[in-house]
Design a protein around this nucleic acid. Structure first.
Length: 581
RNA sequence: GCACCCGUAGCUCAGCUGGAUAGAGCGCUGCCCUCCGAAGGCAGAGGCCCAAGGUUCGAAUCCUUGCGGGUGCGCCA
């Protein structure tokens, strides 16, 4: 049930009629024809650009085509008025009956109102977070987690089959550093004095891991060389860190379908297989790269490395996959990992990276294009930095001292719902200011509160109606036309509801969950406007104590609003509030 | 130096695969609770959409160049 696509069909049908009449050429691309809400509500309920985009291919004036379409459009009972305006827009005003039937239709569909078949069950893999398993998640990861999770939910809602995936970087040198750091904590647990040198992780969160290691192995690793304990401690520590990360994600309500281990790619021939696949395409060679311009590393010297010819697929320079000492670079297992994703048969891959990985985008796309013979598209979404504030003052964190603001810090301070909603009220590629005090403010400039408040108000109406003995169950309301909700403010609300399915498709197509958050804010705003009018005009209140039938009619509209609010909040991963405290 | 992202109201930001007179919140000005659903609502002021070219019937949106800000740039992950 999507009013805009229904009217869209009406428009294309009308064009079809003109074609059979010979009034328009038979071969026309209807792709650019859109039906959308006009910017100015005075223009009507919907507007189509059909006449303008068909003018050139049809070799006719836009206004002439529009005039010819109008009679076919106004013949439909849903259309109250069709008129030509401006350069050739056709403005449509829909009959009151259409709007009055909408709430019931929403309630019949329930949470599924707004779900779309756009994705056609295509399989999408969304990879997000993928933080190194060397410590707890921090604020930056939080934004990636929230964004990726909402994007996944949005795509699911839009009809895609979504896999949520986390890539564990447990194969590189950083997990050795972790192991050595834990070993120091282990020594400490045995009462030794230790010092955290450069290149180790001094964070307190490893104290417990060191103690747990002592618990596990006793004195076995004391005074032993690295060869004895490194691998075992690494395993032990990464396991613990993953548990920690899983707990952190759970705090936000994020659940992954797949945790994919980088280590599983080593020693199994899988990296080699992926590289071979590239070699077969003539994309692997040995060579020496130019030093990077502008910021040349101190110790630069030309060395021969094994390179991937990523420039073939739009990258700026070819990228090393093997170091001069013969070990793989980080890029090699990444290629193998994406090769695996391609092989698993996904129709679309999405990676969510932090902005600091922006330089990685081109080479990754090049790799996937080469590995899949340009059949599997890879979309990479970057999430920009989060700046923390407290009382308007920037919140400093020191990574060197190992004290950084963690996901847990944030969620424990403001809660999962607020964290998620706030982080989704900004485009992913725009930096985000996160003020611990502002996000908890109970006022209009706090969108979380504002949207929750709207939902809570409707819940309150439902409770009061029930207490007054009025049947306001969804089943009953779904059979009631909102004929007693025909005031302009009420119609405005119904019209906003009609936009929901359309918005879902736009948001999914652009992979921009923030659009959902903004829509919810607008919908809440319409609700509050109507609600407040009830102060001055009691006949606009949802609950009319002395008239159960009218109440049901109006409450059907209100309930439809809360259904959509709940559906939208569901995509964002936020629990709708039944009452405000 | 190169690549990517960004530049919209005093501030923070939306802006629909290009569409009509560019929107919201904050701040500012004025108004709305003797009773009723004010954690709210209504109205107003405030714009060279960074600049200059180009494409188009039509550009904040697409292309080119310049300016300004952020991020990143071999054998780290």
């Amino acid at each position: 049930m999507n009013l805009f696509s229904e009217i869209g069909t009406l428009v294309t049908d009308a064009i079809g009629k003109l074609q059979t009449e010979g009034r328009l050429p038979g071969e026309l691309n209807l792709g650019p024809v859109t039906v959308e809400p006009p910017r100015d509500p005075a223009h009507g309920d919907m507007a189509t650009n059909a006449a303008m985009v068909l003018a050139k291919p049809a070799g006719q004036k836009p206004r002439d085509i529009a005039e010819a379409l109008v009679p076919h459009l106004s013949a439909d009972p849903r259309v109250a008025e069709a008129s030509v305006a401006g350069p050739g827009f056709i403005n449509l005003r829909l009959s009151g009956a259409v709007w009055q039937a909408l709430p019931a239709a929403v309630l019949k569909a329930g949470e599924a109102y707004g779900r779309s078949a756009m994705g056609q069950g295509q399989r999408v893999n969304v990879e997000y977070v993928s933080a190194n398993p060397t410590g707890p998640l921090h604020v930056g990861h939080t934004r990636g987690a929230v964004f990726g999770d909402a994007l996944a939910a949005l795509l699911d809602y839009a009809g895609y089959e979504v896999t949520r995936e986390y890539y564990i970087n447990d194969g590189g040198a950083q997990v050795d550093v972790l192991a050595r750091s834990v070993y120091l904590r282990y020594l400490e647990a045995h009462g030794h004095e230790v010092e955290f040198a450069e290149g180790t992780y001094p964070g307190d969160y490893l104290i417990a891991v060191g103690a747990a290691l002592k618990e596990e192995v006793g004195e076995a690793y004391l005074d032993q060389p690295e060869e004895v304990w490194l691998e075992k401690v690494r395993l032990f520590a990464t396991e613990r860190m993953l548990d920690l990360i899983r707990e952190d994600l759970a705090l936000l309500g994020v659940k992954m379908d797949v945790f994919f281990s980088e280590k599983s790619l080593y020693g199994t021939g899988r990296i080699e297989a992926a590289i071979e696949s590239l070699r077969d395409k003539g994309l692997i060679y040995k060579g020496v790269l130019e030093p990077p311009k502008g910021k040349t590393p101190e110790d630069w010297e030309p060395r021969e490395q094994t390179l991937f010819k990523s420039t073939e697929y739009g990258d700026d320079v070819d990228r090393p996959i093997m170091k001069s000492d013969g070990a793989w670079t980080y890029f090699a297992p990444d290629i193998a990992y994406h090769y695996d994703k391609v092989e698993r048969g996904f129709d679309l891959l999405i990676d969510v990276f932090g902005a600091d990985h922006g330089g990685y985008v081109k080479r990754m796309k090049a790799a996937v294009a080469a590995l899949s013979q340009e059949k599997t598209p890879l979309d990479i979404k970057l999430t920009q930095l989060v700046k923390l504030y407290k009382n308007g003052e920037p919140f400093k964190m020191s990574k060197r001292a190992g004290t950084f603001v963690t996901l847990r810090d944030v969620v424990e301070e403001v809660g999962s719902d607020v964290t998620r909603f706030v982080m989704l009220t900004r485009k992913n590629d725009a930096p985000l200011d996160f003020d611990f005090d502002k996000v908890l403010e109970q006022s209009k400039d706090n969108p979380v509160f504002y949207v929750q408040y709207a939902h809570a108000r409707i819940s309150s109406v439902l409770r009061k109606a029930q207490a007054a003995g009025i049947d306001v169950s969804d089943a009953t309301l779904a059979g009631i036309d909102a004929t007693d909700a025909a005031h302009p403010s009420e119609l405005a609300l119904a019209k906003k509801l009609a936009e929901w399915p359309r918005l879902v498709e736009i948001a999914a197509r652009t992979s921009e969950p923030h659009r959902v958050a903004f829509y919810l804010y607008e919908l809440a705003s319409e609700l509050h406007a109507l609600w407040n009018r009830g102060n001055d005009e009691p006949e606009l209140r949802f609950l009319q104590e002395d008239n159960p039938a009218t109440s049901q009619s109006k409450i059907a509209l209100a309930r439809a609003v809360s259904v959509v609010l709940a559906a939208g909040l569901g995509i964002l991963g936020v629990e709708p509030a039944e009452e405000m405290r």
